[in-house]
Design a protein around this nucleic acid. Structure first.
Lengths: 248, 248
DNA sequence: GAGCATTTGTCCGTATGTATT
DNA sequence: CAATACATACGGACAAATGCT
């Protein structure tokens, strides 16, 4: 008698093992799991899919199953989130590419946020963010022209927009408003995030304003893959405890 | 020629249909889908499971597959979230039950939050929340004794703790700090939420303080099923636009 | 570039278990 | 008790992507 099996039991066992492995490590293939646990392919497969649902592994057709790494992205009033710093401090390799950068007339909703007439030309930028060369997020940013004369060449570097505005434009940008939720992505976003399946993604909208004048300067929306990023959002005037371990 | 199929295509078709149906409506069974789309059980099943992953349906063994309803739970600095009001305004039926209510010595972390000695006796309460008689959330609340002499009998009613403190205790409670994230639930929480599978849940921690004195009065943690509740979190001093339709 | 083995993705048919009605 | 419906499982097959030769 081997033991009572069931794919849930196998998944639990594998989950324990995966917890001990470094991100990127390759797991046993479905065939190997079949032999190891004495089950059919359906069960072996179901177990690994269970791990995928839990966000513990990432599967690549033709290649294998790998231990996943998820990064905490903390959003709070005070903190200025930097993609590179966040990813690096998690021990991963950050990268970002500029997909497009140009002047564009603002769509209606954005115009409202920035407090300008719809159709006004503002800087518009799309960026892709990577973690360990895996697509993690796409973002869209709108910047009023009076905050910055030109955006294109300056943004070649891997810097945050806030940083740039503080240096190039002489604006002290502070977060004015931010909303986070999860949604099913549009097909466009899904394609940009290279998701070949439908799953909820984080949507982070934010408005930054000039600390001096109080007027809105940038509006941005970011879509983040939930299997790569875990958004943690904090509201509050007090930092309650430094030693909170949220995710074991 | 019928058409090219694939469970993703079937799922897409079904998703469109489900969008038109009222929450609670029963879907066609897997057998019926087999006949309708001319596929095997595996494909019909995969399609419906896809809808479940998207949060569009809820499946009950022995009973069937039903159109799901997900409720937005908005957390912001200003707003005092009321379970009953939130659920009701979404057109659903709220309910909550008190699992336990007693004086208990605070655990370490909570003591730190409330600013009391570990082991001090405070009110402790566990509540279960329902939406349309489906388990939606479990919460744990800690209240300092000086804010309220007795908690038990008063909380039989379906009211918010904030409300009670404002009436019984003469305390004006304001949200001081709040953190939201998603985590894989512990087995205990999973059981309380009646989840027979493992999936991430919302974790909302918050500290409320007396507006007058500024000292912390309550600390609470809530775990919410992501298939029932969608947490939206807002940080900000401005309400940017009244007409934002987040979820189509 | 072509060819090949590996690995996951999709699908079929069938069967049995288990909860609900 | 019986019918229904979802959950789990087996074995087999081919497709598609990847990586190596």
């Amino acid at each position: 008698m081997t033991e009572r099996n069931g794919y849930q039991v196998i998944a639990g066992r594998l989950a324990d093992e995966v917890a001990e492995l470094a991100p990127g490590t390759k797991l046993a293939s479905e065939h190997e799991l079949m032999d190891r646990f004495g089950v059919g392919r359906a069960s072996a497969r179901a177990a690994v899919q269970e791990l995928e649902r839990r966000g513990l592994v990432r599967r690549v057709r033709g290649s294998g199953t790998f231990v996943n790494r998820r990064i905490d992205y903390v959003i709070s009033r005070e903190r200025r989130p930097s993609w590179h710093r966040t990813v690096e401090s998690a021990g991963a390799v950050p990268r970002s590419t500029v997909l497009s950068s140009q002047l564009r007339p603002v769509p209606e909703r954005c115009a409202h946020y920035l407090g300008v007439e719809p159709g006004t030309e503002v800087h518009h930028m799309r960026r892709l963010r990577f973690v360990d060369d895996h697509v993690a997020a796409v973002g869209e940013e709108w910047v009023k022209r009076d905050a910055l004369t030109e955006l294109g060449p300056a943004m070649r570097i891997e810097e945050s927009l806030d940083e740039l505005l503080r240096q190039m434009g002489r604006v002290d940008v502070v977060r004015s408003w931010c909303r986070t939720a999860m949604e099913l992505p549009s097909e466009e976003i899904q394609a940009a995030l290279e998701m070949n399946y439908v799953a909820p993604v984080w949507v982070v909208e934010s408005i930054n304003r000039d600390a001096a004048t109080g007027t809105a300067v940038t509006y941005s929306t970011a879509w983040m893959r939930a299997d790569v990023i875990r958004v943690v959002m904090e509201i509050g005037d007090t930092e309650p405890a430094p030693n909170i371990a949220l995710h074991r």
